[in-house]
Design a protein around this nucleic acid. Sequence first.
DNA 1: CAGCCCTCTTGATCCAGATCAAAGGCTGGC
DNA 2: GCCAGCCTTTGATCTGGATCAAGAGGGCTG
Lengths: 257, 257
Amino acid sequence: MSRNRIVDLAEIRSNCKKCSLFQLCMPMGLDDNDLEKLDKIIKRRRPVEKGDYLYRMGDPFHSVYTIRAGSLKTYTTNQNGQEQIIAFHLPGDLIGLDAIQGEIHTCSAKALETISVCEIPFDRLESLSQKIPGLQHHLLKLMSEELQLEHCHMTILARAPVEARLASFLTQLSERFRARGYSATEFNLSMSRNDIANSLGMAVETISRLLSQFQEHGLLQVERKHVQILDMPALVELSNRCGPNAQNTRDSSHGTA
Amino acid sequence: MSRNRIVDLAEIRSNCKKCSLFQLCMPMGLDDNDLEKLDKIIKRRRPVEKGDYLYRMGDPFHSVYTIRAGSLKTYTTNQNGQEQIIAFHLPGDLIGLDAIQGEIHTCSAKALETISVCEIPFDRLESLSQKIPGLQHHLLKLMSEELQLEHCHMTILARAPVEARLASFLTQLSERFRARGYSATEFNLSMSRNDIANSLGMAVETISRLLSQFQEHGLLQVERKHVQILDMPALVELSNRCGPNAQNTRDSSHGTA
DNA sequence: CAGCCCTCTTGATCCAGATCAAAGGCTGGC
DNA sequence: GCCAGCCTTTGATCTGGATCAAGAGGGCTG
């Protein structure tokens, strides 16, 4: 199981200071002393296999997690057992902060592929951030950012036509890849069409149709999980157009507006 | 303008310790010493009139606000000028924390009626919470709670049929009134039907029709802004049923399932 | 007090996108 | 290497809720 992961494990043992994701997950401007303190409270965990849970809705809350590699989804489950995906998370993301209130996880976190994470016991993080002002600010900032992202997502869910939803999903993902030093125009989707549909409040069939349509219109190239964005400005334009008449804006020869 | 508000102003000048909302907006367990420190950084502001802004999207972020009386809505505006309501806020709510990241307000906050608020300069709140562990924890907890509420809202926006959306809105509002010591079954809606529709991702007409329908089914009594809930269990049931066949569950004689 | 405007309600129609159906492709297991 | 099962795509149909339309009621203004 872990035989072919020895290299990963070795890498995982490296400390915060050497971690390439450090700038994403933790505050700039911590001095070496603070860094060491932080490093001490972090537990490196064994990789989590695809489909496994980092935590489940209802679990007691003890730790938050930063993703070192791979991606995962967080989702809630309602009375009828239907799941609703809240967000997808990429390397550098800090997850679990939504469970501080109530001290019970209100989402489940499931790996979309094999992932590795750092576990940070929350009580220790909290007392550490009591001592390190930059850390406290960083935590608040991260939660604030999460709120902003969700506001954006809510806006999309409430009003946007399907084209805008998918375009928005793709451009946002692209932006996040760019921020992590990956290509912004070419990437692999770690989530299924079903997951995309779920997170955007749509049907799988609609996702599939739209991807084909986007490809036809020359916005992107899609082959199974692999996506190459060809016309980013058009996609961005589409994603902003949450109003009426959100059709192809590039080729206006047969546009409706 | 403020001539008929002298009494309010007097009340507003009272300090945190005497404030009836204190338990809602600030952490339990602060000792008198801490309380005084907190009290010192809080500015009491003149009432904000109905329709006025506490802050606007794009404004630089300096302060967070606790609502002392009245209610307001926060909303974002997209490229096309369409607004999307993020949330309604009641007395005791602390708002503005979503602007920490970026230090620019990403929502506008507009009074639904005349409100009074306490303004808390964020930098001072932050350094104070650096000294008072309970305060830091409280801030984190409040943001965590906000995240949870938004997850819930997102779930509703993504999937729920209109009956569930409205039922959920009403039961949540009821719950919040109860938490503030008001009646959970009889209250006035400070927001217009339009605002309700907007926040739930629906059309005004649908809100209107559903309210009539709920009334016909004996779930509630509604007269303009005034609402009296008659069958809370049924409403709760409706609101949980985010799945298919979310019709009247009480009278199963003509149910579809 | 009349008039206007704005919010709300109710009815009729329409359509975006869900659902139903069915046929490929991959992928993982044996 | 082959089979089973899932994921994805594409087409056909259906429907929930939006949109369009038209009053009705309330409240603010002059």
